[in-house]
Each structure stands twice: as C-alpha cells, then as structure tokens.
C-alpha cells in the first residue's frame, strides 16, 4: 500500500500491536471509533505505518481496504514518516490573495524538495499544503509544528527555516 513501505522488525510490530490494542480498548471496538483511533496512533508515531493499519483492521474487524480508504480520504493522515518539523502552508483564499503560493514555491526551492516528495532530503522538514488555518485576517500564514507565523514573506521564510534547521541540528527534536 504505502509504496515506500517501511520495513519493520519484529519488535516494532509487537510495540505497534500493543499500542493499537490499548487505543482500541480506550475508544471501543466499533466502526465509529476508527477515525479517533487512527488519529491517536498518528499523534504517537507521527505517521501511520502500514503495519498499524493492518493491526487496526484486525483489532476492529474492519477490512484493511476500508481502513485504507478512510486513511486516504482525509488530509490529516500521513503514510510516510514525516520530517522533524512539519510546515503547513495555508492555501486558503486570504492567504492566496496575499501571495502564499509564492511563499510555497520559494520554500520548496529553499528546502530543495523534489517534485514528487514532501520531505526535504535532510529529513528535517515536511511541507504540507493545508486548507485554511482560520487565521485569515493575519494572512499569509504558515504553521511550523504548533507554532503559527503570520504575515510571512520570503525573508521571514528564510529566517524561520534557518531557525528550525539550527534547532534540529542541536538535537532538540520534537518527534524524538
């Protein structure tokens, strides 16, 4: 399913199983709980490895195909391991009018992200385009981790990137 299927060793699959079991116990074994369970797993692992989907499928008794269908439908779910920092570029109207698409293009070139990828080669940044963060009055807006930056321009982007790059190099990683 995930083309770059991450190979997991036995120990890791066991850990995932244990975590899924725990999460399923908390949310209940029903179809309704599928999305919250997936959200909770992603919050812990940073993404949804293939094995976690298989595990959720067997724990909930929902076909894997169905789980995958849900995962691919919603923007929130990520199937590949993300970089240390996730940069969300708001692509809402107000941000577009105030030229966030230019910021986006600039960021891709600044981080040297390949056309078919969303993560920078050094594995520090993953850039996602999101639909409106609801901060339209202070557009254009980008979000790095939980931090929102408003009224950004190219200079500001340079500053933000070098700040986080330095932070990542000194080893204070968020998804450690």
């Amino acid at each position: 399913m995930d083309s770059k299927g991450v190979q997991l060793i036995n120990e890791e699959t066991k850990n995932i199983d244990r975590m899924v079991e725990e999460t399923v116990r908390r949310y209940g074994r029903s179809r309704k709980a599928l999305i919250p369970i997936l959200q909770s797993i992603q919050a812990k692992l940073g993404y949804l490895p293939r094995y976690s989907l298989e595990s959720v499928s067997s724990h909930l008794g929902i076909p894997l195909s169905n789980v995958y269908g849900v995962v691919t439908f919603y923007h929130q779910f990520i199937l590949e391991p993300p970089g240390t920092y996730i940069i969300q570029m708001c692509m809402g109207t107000a941000c577009y009018i105030r030229r966030n698409s230019e910021n986006y293009r600039f960021l891709l070139s600044l981080l040297e992200i390949e056309p078919n990828s969303r993560t920078s080669k050094d594995g520090i940044f993953t850039v996602l385009r999101v639909r409106c963060l609801g901060c339209c009055s202070i557009a254009p807006v980008i979000k790095v981790g939980d931090e929102v930056y408003s009224r950004v321009n190219l200079d500001e982007m340079r500053r933000i990137v070098s700040f986080y790059r330095a932070k990542a190099r000194t080893g204070s990683s968020k998804h450690a």
């Binding site: 399913m1 076909p63 894997l64 195909s65 169905n66 995958y68 269908g69």
Partner: peptide, 11 residues
C-alpha cells in the same frame, strides 16, 4: 497506475 488489475483495496 502500474497497470495491475484492481484487487478492490477499497472493499
């Protein structure tokens, strides 16, 4: 996309 038959992964 790789030209393989659909195995109905969506169910």
């Amino acid at each position: 996309r790789e030209g393989k038959p659909c195995v109905g992964c969506r169910g």
